[in-house]
């Protein structure tokens, strides 16, 4: 009982002691880097539509995302993306490029354990929950939509 009290007091003391960083520089960095990544996306999309006017809007978006994923995956491979991430934080995590980075980085990291047990098994250690939550929540939405459509 006494231990619990002491631990609580200690935790409180420690959280007061933790150095407070000024949030504004990182917030600003994440803002402009995130904005630039979105701009690149828009640019790629417009360019695709310009070159291939027959593309439907939806396929153009799909191509755009694939291009962004490719770029992010490549930058991860050559060891640049983690430096962007260190600088921008959320700015490079939230865009689809962050998703790509979180799949590529464990694959590269665990390459040393072989192709099957390294690359393939560890590929989703970070991005797995994104796909699981995404698919499960979309199924919930679909189910609700289906039930409503019955009436």
């Amino acid at each position: 009982m006494e231990d619990k009290k002491r631990n609580e007091a200690y935790n409180k003391y420690v959280s007061a002691k933790i150095p407070k960083t000024r949030p504004w520089p990182t917030l600003f960095n994440s803002f402009w880097v995130g904005g630039v990544i979105c701009l690149i996306g828009q640019g790629v999309n417009d360019l695709l539509l310009l070159i291939f006017p027959s593309l439907s809007e939806q396929s153009a978006w799909a191509y755009t995302l694939i291009v962004l994923i490719f770029i992010a995956s490549f930058l991860t491979g050559i060891g640049v993306y983690d430096q962007i991430g260190k600088f921008a934080g959320g700015g490079s995590i939230v865009p689809i490029t962050g998703f790509s980075n979180s799949i590529t980085s464990p694959s590269i990291e665990f390459k040393s354990e072989g192709i099957v047990y390294g690359i393939c098994v560890k590929m989703f250690t970070i991005a797995g929950p994104v796909i699981v939550f995404g698919v499960v929540s979309s199924m919930v939405v679909g189910l609700i939509y289906w039930i409503i459509s019955l009436f």
């Binding site: 933790i18 150095p19 960083t21 990182t26 991860t76 491979g77 060891g79 993306y81 983690d82 430096q83 962007i84 991430g85 260190k86 921008a88 934080g89 490079s92 995590i93 962050g98 980075n101 979180s102 590529t104 980085s105 464990p106 590269i108 990291e109 665990f110 250690t125 970070i126």
Partner: peptide, 17 residues
Amino acid sequence: ERQYRFPLELGNQRPPT
């Protein structure tokens, strides 16, 4: 880093502590 934390190439920030 890879045993206790994240892959090296993951673009995340290290907390101030």
